[in-house]
Design a protein around this nucleic acid. Structure first.
Lengths: 358, 358
DNA sequence: CTGAAAGCGCTAACAC
DNA sequence: GTGTTAGCGCTTTCAG
């Protein structure tokens, strides 16, 4: 049994297809005609096919959503936010999981392009070069949670972008030694959490507890957080206390475990993401480090398990769902002027994993 | 700058559009022509538009994915599995979050229909009636994790379907008092976890530890698990020890807390899902019930936090990712014969939340 | 206010 | 082997 087409409706209602189209998209029509068309359409269970419409309008009208990993509850929350907004706008969402791999990301971008999905929200895995094709093709892109780094002058560019954003925070960037002019990396709106303020809050909290040797566990694509950490601890940071992992659980665990073993003198650790936090807790437990007696742990990003953990984890919460919702709003805003980026606040949630230095 | 169309390529290569189409979809063409077309296509950065193709073929070719909640790590894993399979098949995935609400689900089904997405994988929220329209429209549907219940004869039908599946388990359903003929509810393939065996294992484990008063915390759409629980405890189950919640966190907490307070004599609780498990742990902690000394807790579904919990939670793990992958395989299998359902095994992961009855 | 007609980009007959 | 052509279902001028 085939689906009814606009033509079927037109015939059955004794009008032209154009009229049906108009009625269904709220155009002008005599009340009488409108009535009849609507009735027939309902009777035939007619649904306008998005296929025809999209082809005609040369756009799909959906939203692409590219995330590193749906298993991560932060990304899950982000996705929920996007979906909520998309639904209220009646837009379908095409999702892809990149595994934090630039190649897969590039492939997925290609797929979206092929589907004529012209708007996309992404937690980018690749660098600016990965994204340039999408931009050149005229896609409306909004980044969430982080920005793609510049392949060449990675650090400087990233810093520049961050500085600009940090102005919103009310704290002007250090005038520092910045070369004259530098081309902004990617001129794309983004929804980010206020890493700098979150990290600063965490470090201050730890300091207030008497901690001086604070370590930082970082993940990939998180330059802003490390930078903020360095700034927050002030002076010349002890670089040995700053360790990184790639996106995997194993590497996170290895980083945490290695750190705790080489630097038994540290008394507190700040995990730059929920997977790192998980690794820190596990590694500490494995090494018989009691939390918070021997080691205070604080984690960036709140997750359901933080409360169930022993001891319950103190965290810097970021509004994952809101981020998604805002990102969707931005990408949907088809205004003449390009939307501005958004910086969302964090919140320190004190539970039981941080204690005074003994 | 407009995207190149097949026509542009044809002109630039000095051939007809059909030839271009053939070359790009692996049809026959002289090596020479093929070469030239490919070169021109690459040079023009040509991407065939899915829009045109889909309209022509009257189908989108994507996969719809409808889940209750992406924040739940089980669903996240499921989604990852689906995406992995879909990517290797080059199919886009359109996702929707139903919030476990039949109405939203129905709406999303409508959206997929409109998009001509003709295959969908779902963890259904609604009943059979919600799904009949999709089936009638010729959608290829595969359910994951659970089956839609029958609105009228809810219990009987569900049980019938389960019995049939349980045969795969090697354990024939009890011949019991089953009426002669009964129409199967929805004839749709599904990928389910072997709830019966999982629940049985859990109950036996608990029994082996000496527990006799075992409670069950159930969620919505989980008739099979409760039924399995009743069967596993045998005899006439103490119905007061079986409590339910709707999908929300609050209701789960309320159910657990209420249960623990009204029945202080229970010594073990089996949570029928990860949110229920979370609630059980929290409620126990709130009531100063020590786990596992005062109360043994076991949870259906493994999650990352189970290991971080205190004490680490003993669980019945189900292969979320595999479920998604298998479901995608099923829905993609365009065979002449309808694919059969799949029952996936569970695994008891013993950690520290269950102890002997004291 | 309404209908006829022209495509949107692509594939699949069908001719050559 | 390759080109021509006819739509897929819809929106949108453009006449009436």
């Amino acid at each position: 049994m085939k689906r009814a087409t606009i033509k079927d409706v037109a015939e059955a209602a004794g009008v032209g297809v154009a009229t049906v189209s108009r009625v269904l998209s709220g155009g002008s029509a005599s009340p009488e005609t409108r009535e009849r068309v609507l009735a027939v359409a309902a009777q035939l269970d007619y649904r306008p096919s998005a296929l025809g419409r999209n082809l005609r309008q040369r756009r799909t009208g959906g939203i692409g959503l590219l995330l590193p990993d749906l298993t991560d509850s932060f990304h899950g929350g982000l996705a929920e936010g996007v979906l909520a907004c998309a639904r209220s706008a009646g837009e379908p969402v095409v999702i892809g999981s990149t595994g934090d791999d630039p190649e897969q990301e590039a492939e997925l971008i290609g797929m979206l392009l092929e589907q004529s999905v012209d708007r996309v929200i992404a937690v980018p895995a690749g660098d600016a070069d990965t994204w340039r094709p999408a931009l050149k093709a005229g896609m409306g892109v909004v980044f969430a949670d982080r920005l793609p780094y510049e392949p060449d002058a990675a650090e400087e560019e990233a810093t520049a972008a961050v500085d600009e954003l940090m102005m919103l925070d009310g704290v002007p960037a250090a005038p520092a030694s910045r070369p004259a002019v530098r081309p902004r990396p990617l001129d794309v709106p983004a929804v980010l959490t206020d890493d700098r303020s979150g990290i600063r809050t965490a470090v201050q909290y730890l300091r207030g507890l008497g901690h001086r040797r604070i370590a930082y566990l970082g993940g990939p694509g998180r330059e802003r957080r490390v930078e903020a950490f360095r700034q927050a601890v002030g002076g010349v940071p002890d670089e040995e206390l700053i360790v990184f992992s790639d996106g995997s659980r194993d590497s996170a665990y290895a980083a945490a475990s290695g750190l705790f073993q080489t630097r038994p003198d540290l008394t507190a650790v700040l995990a730059g993401g929920n997977m790192l936090g998980e690794a820190a807790v596990l590694a500490a437990r494995e090494l018989d480090l009691r939390v918070p007696r021997d080691l205070s742990v604080i984690m960036f990003d709140d997750v359901p398990w933080a409360e169930l953990c022993f001891p319950p984890l103190t965290v810097i919460a970021q509004p994952a769902r809101d981020m998604g919702y805002r990102a969707a709003e931005l990408v949907l805003r088809t205004g003449p002027r390009r939307p501005r980026s958004v910086l969302l606040p964090t919140e320190l949630v004190i539970r039981g994993s941080c204690g005074p230095r003994l």
